[in-house]
Design a protein around this nucleic acid. Structure first.
Lengths: 196, 196
DNA sequence: GGTGCATAGTTGAATCGTAAACTAAAGCAG
DNA sequence: CTGCTTTAGTTTACGATTCAACTATGCACC
């Protein structure tokens, strides 16, 4: 049975070599292609990230859920609370919490039904909508923030040394900067639309 | 307008102090409670993580989508490919990719319709189901792995120094270990079921 | 001042994920 | 064996998210 590791080359001998030519075979026959598979170290870190980020998401969401709100709703409300006057444009919210416009529309609608936010027309732009945190929303947030910060500490901040947590921050800042610098849509030339 | 930062105390003077007693006021009136808000450093790293992890998820998912698969489906298939004989129990898959049993059932059903995996009764346990990667699934994965590893490099591994990436791996390993060590369900005593 | 294109946001359908109830087989105590 | 509890996995219904199409305003340029 042929073993396909999605990252490392099938041959363990080659693992430490970060860049090499490997044979990848598919429907159209064997083709030699240069693929920079991950080294053993890289693979280990990447897997740890993937696993732990899922666990973290699940844990934080779980802890908030028992207070009746999801993490993504919380993020929206918390961004509003930090904004001047508790008000932000829809698109500003979308950018801040890294969600699609459409998703923000839906999420905001849910929070509006709950009475935590209100929609108002943007004063300067006829197309725009300003989202405003209501007093009720602010009150609820003060509650939630206490539970949430404890959750974040328990599952994340406090499980490692301050130095390591700072390094993690630095690493993720690099990811953020790279993402902002290269807002590439899935390069159409790279997109064979399921050619297999 | 009272500004509520969900993590730091409202008063900037207090930021460097990691633990203090703050007044949190809610419906039942002002109550003094000890909350370990995040320091400025911690806050900065946490925010960077939150933002970048969302961006990363979006970017990796986007890059795979144009090849007709989602990241969570990819994860399932890739775990199978690494398993002995390309076979794993449903629950083993769920644990490996950190998804609920129910979700794995759904995802597996989708992949089965696509012909990439097959379900078989577990030989030793009458309740169990073994998921097996089909040849077609393996062929597709070889394709996808190439695109995916490039995506992971571009958005993640290659945007920082190897040392920093290793530190990140170490940090996330700590998160994982803490999670495994404390599989706490949302502590019912902490769960006021929306008491606000 | 009208045409063309970009931007802001919404809508609705389809898909995906979650939560709780459910089936069925183990495991275990007596 | 019988009954009780746990474990594995599925199902169903519902809520959340995505995707593509759509409305409406702004903006640039001639």
């Amino acid at each position: 049975m042929h073993h396909v590791d999605p990252f490392r080359t099938p041959d363990p001998r080659d693992a430490p070599d970060p860049a090499r030519t490997v044979g990848v075979s598919w429907d159209h026959g064997p083709v030699a292609e240069t693929v920079r598979w991950l080294s053993e170290d890289e693979q280990s870190s990447w897997r740890a990230y993937l696993r732990a980020s899922r666990e973290l998401d699940a844990a934080l969401d779980r802890d908030l859920h028992c207070h009746g709100i999801s993490l993504s709703e919380y993020e929206l409300v918390s961004m509003l609370s930090e904004a001047d006057g508790g008000r932000l444009r829809m698109s500003a919210v979308a950018d801040l919490i890294v969600q699609s416009r459409s998703r923000v529309t839906h999420t905001a609608a849910r929070l509006e039904r709950r009475g935590w936010v209100a929609r108002r027309p943007a004063p300067d732009d006829g197309r725009g909508v300003v989202l405003e945190l209501t007093d009720e929303g602010r009150g609820a947030l003060e509650h939630l923030a206490v539970a949430h910060v404890e959750s974040v500490r328990r599952h994340f901040v406090d499980v490692m040394s301050p130095e390591l947590f700072r390094a993690l921050g630095e690493a993720m800042r690099a990811v953020d900067e790279a993402y902002d610098a290269d807002p590439t849509t899935p390069d159409p030339t790279q997109c064979p639309t399921m050619d297999a």
